[in-house]
């Protein structure tokens, strides 16, 4: 009885894992088949010959800019992540550890802005980027600057800075340290988990960004990989072995990071309930 139950349990978990993982397997194996084998019926689960040249063909396909797209995404993701860390560390520290007039009001104001929904702001943000106002259409600036501060990161940093023992800060003050010095040498080393969480969340969000760059850029030389993949999917059409190679370009780097840092990712999800 107990054995049957545990067999059922294992069967259930295993089926779940197979369903979760199979599309990745199918993407990889398809990407190494030739055109005829990719479309063969019944389907071929293991390529009879490994066509590694597919990846080269997909990478150098006419009208694609994979290398450039990767550079764009890496550049945008890095600057955005570093920027978010800087703004949220400073603001989080000030809200948690410094006294100034209007602190409560300003923090309440930030809380309120959480209720402004993304679908209402998309079109006005687009208008704001147009030549009539900022003139940022088709620039990196438009892909970076609007995302340099997030309310979530400020809250998280504030929360962590509130947990730094007051005695540590007091003794540093007695030694004559200013806030900047305390922040850098005393508080920051103690809030590393928050920094890692924010970096992962922001990095992932930038890596996966799609709708905003899609509407705010048209120049293929500054578009990120997600937009490039959709473009390639259209160009490649039914040449699915090449399209799957393109999908692999986008998927594999993030999965590699995930496998290395999976503990932080899963903790971050469990702790904050972030949704991508």
């Amino acid at each position: 009885m107990a054995r049957a139950g545990s067999l059922g349990k294992h069967g259930f978990l295993l089926v779940g894992a197979l369903v979760a993982a199979f599309p990745f397997y199918w993407m990889l194996t398809t990407s190494f088949k030739d055109f005829a084998e990719a479309a063969k019926s019944p389907p071929v689960l293991w390529p009879s010959a490994w066509h590694f040249e597919n990846w080269v063909e997909a990478w150098t396909y006419p009208h694609t800019y994979w290398a450039r797209a990767f550079l764009n995404t890496i550049f945008v993701a890095t600057t955005t992540t570093l920027g978010v860390l800087a703004t949220s560390v400073l603001a989080g520290y000030a809200f948690a550890r410094m006294s100034f007039r209007g602190r409560g009001v300003l923090f309440a104001f930030l809380l309120l802005t959480l209720f402004i929904p993304g679908e209402a702001t998309l079109i006005p943000q687009f208008v704001l980027m147009s030549r009539r106002y900022l003139g940022w259409y088709d620039t990196y600036t438009a892909q970076i600057v609007p995302f340099l501060a997030t309310i979530f990161s400020i809250f998280l940093m504030r929360q962590f800075f509130l947990g730094v023992p007051q005695e540590l800060i007091d003794s540093a003050r007695l030694d004559g340290a200013g806030h900047l010095r305390i922040l850098w040498y005393v508080a920051l080393p103690l809030v590393r988990p928050a920094l890692v969480t924010i970096a992962l969340i922001e990095g992932l969000a930038s890596w996966n960004a799609f709708l905003w760059p899609l509407i705010i850029t048209s120049d293929p030389l500054i578009r990120p990989i997600q937009v490039q993949l959709v473009q390639f999917n259209t160009e490649g059409g039914s040449r699915y072995h090449l399209v799957m190679a393109g999908a692999a370009f986008v998927v594999l780097p993030i999965l590699a990071v995930y496998f290395v840092a999976q503990r932080y990712f899963i903790e971050g999800i469990a702790r904050t309930g972030i949704r991508g």
Binding site: L13, G16, A17, A20, A21, P23, F24, W26, M27, T30, L204, W207, N208, F210, Q226, L229, V230, N233, Y240, V243, M244, G246, A247, V250, V251, I254, L255, Y258, F259, Q262, F265, I266, I269, G276
Partner: peptide, 24 residues
């Protein structure tokens, strides 16, 4: 190990994952 596998789809960008499913 199960946990790591179950989260894989969620970590993958929606755009790339949807491209795979178009093929499936």
């Amino acid at each position: 190990a199960y946990r790591v596998v179950y989260v894989m789809p969620y970590i993958t960008s929606v755009v790339a994952a949807a491209t795979i499913f178009e093929w499936i």
